[in-house]
Amino acid sequence: TARLYNMTDDPGVKEMLKFNLARDTVHQKQWLRAIEELQADGLETDIAPSALLDEEDQTHNNTIWHLSDGPDGNKGAWSTGEDRIEYLMDPKPLGGPGSAPKPDPELYATYSPTQDAMGTVKGKAQSAVNKLT
């Protein structure tokens, strides 16, 4: 949200993103208070609940992906020592290209069967574009 806020100069978008930033802050406060309450009740001693540790994907439970603009994302204290978190400087996407079916043209007025799933103009519409350009 913060990155998007800094990427736009549209006042309406900025107002919406300022709201989203505030919601992120309050959610973080909620999580912190919930953690404190769980610890006070003796239900959890670690920040991360342990109930589903056997179920979680062990491949991704100790990695952070480099998705930042700068090269210093791995400089935090969490990235050193015996319990360090692995920092992936060049993460690869998990999965292949999307495979959703084409939408029913009667459901959405913005869908045009003259375009493929990637929005590329085709058929007679492409002929018209070719004549105009």
Rank of each mutant, 00 (worst) to 15 (best):
T1S: 15
M7L: 11
D9E: 14
D10C: 03
D10R: 10
V13Q: 14
K14H: 02
E15G: 02
M16F: 06
K18R: 14
F19L: 11
L21W: 01
R23P: 00
R23N: 09
D24Y: 07
H27I: 06
Q28I: 06
R33K: 11
R33I: 09
E36T: 06
E37Y: 04
L38M: 10
L38H: 06
L38R: 15
D41P: 00
T45P: 00
D46H: 07
I47Q: 10
A48K: 12
A48S: 05
S50V: 07
S50Y: 03
A51N: 11
A51Y: 12
L53E: 08
E56K: 10
D57K: 10
I64L: 09
W65V: 10
W65C: 09
D69L: 08
G70H: 05
P71E: 11
G73E: 01
G73F: 04
K75T: 12
K75N: 07
G76Y: 04
G76V: 00
W78L: 11
E82C: 01
D83E: 12
D83A: 09
R84Y: 03
Y87N: 02
Y87H: 04
L88Y: 02
K92Q: 14
P93W: 03
L94T: 09
G95S: 02
G96T: 06
P101M: 01
P103S: 07
L107D: 15
Y108F: 15
T110Q: 05
Y111M: 02
P113N: 06
A117E: 13
M118P: 00
V121K: 06
K124C: 02
K124P: 12
Q126A: 15
L132A: 12
L132N: 09
